[in-house]
């Protein structure tokens, strides 16, 4: 059951992530990115992170991607033109990427052998109650600093996007 869920949604995530990178028009990339985020939310549920899965759907797939799609529609910039790349870049790009991936996978497999197995209910500490309790006791100071950060971001976004005053 868990294996099937993982394989299906990990497959969707990887295919959609490849689509994000190879699509030429930004709106196709944005829709693929929403698919990645939705399937990652299912994987979070598999790992017992109920609250984060809900926040993933609401904040990422909802708010942030709507903002992206809105800006893409507003600018209406169209597809990307092919860039004239240097010979070295086109020759080395994909091999270097595969090397990075192989290195990450090698160390992951080396450090984390198959000792822990994930199953439903293996971790029950991800409810809104326990996350909220930790957020408002142990992590209260980072939480308050985050609110200041968001205030600054709001002010910054308004200052950047407003019309120039005479």
């Amino acid at each position: 059951m868990e294996l099937i869920l993982f394989l299906v949604f990990a497959g969707i995530a990887v295919v959609a992530a490849i689509n994000v990178v190879v699509q030429r028009h930004p709106i196709s990339s944005a829709v693929s990115l929403i698919a990645v985020m939705g399937s990652l939310a299912v994987l979070y549920l598999l790992l017992g992170a109920e609250f984060i899965a809900a926040a993933q759907v609401i904040v990422y797939a909802g708010a942030i991607m709507v903002l992206f799609v809105f800006v893409i529609m507003l600018l209406n910039a169209g597809g990307e033109t092919k860039a004239g790349r240097s010979f070295v870049a086109s020759l080395l790009g994909v091999p270097v990427l595969v090397a990075l991936l192989a290195l990450l996978a090698f160390f992951t497999a080396r450090i984390y052998p198959r000792d822990t197995e994930v199953h439903f209910g293996g971790f029950r500490g991800g409810t809104a109650q326990s996350v909220g309790r930790a957020l408002f006791t142990t992590y209260l100071l980072p939480f308050e600093i985050t609110s200041i950060l968001i205030l600054i971001a709001i002010v910054g976004a308004i200052v950047l996007a407003r019309k120039e005053l005479e």
Partner: peptide
């Protein structure tokens, strides 16, 4: 039917 934990880390790396 259970998933090894390292598969999640592999997916993250990909």
């Amino acid at each position: 039917g259970h998933v090894p934990l390292s598969w999640f880390l592999m997916l993250s790396a990909v």
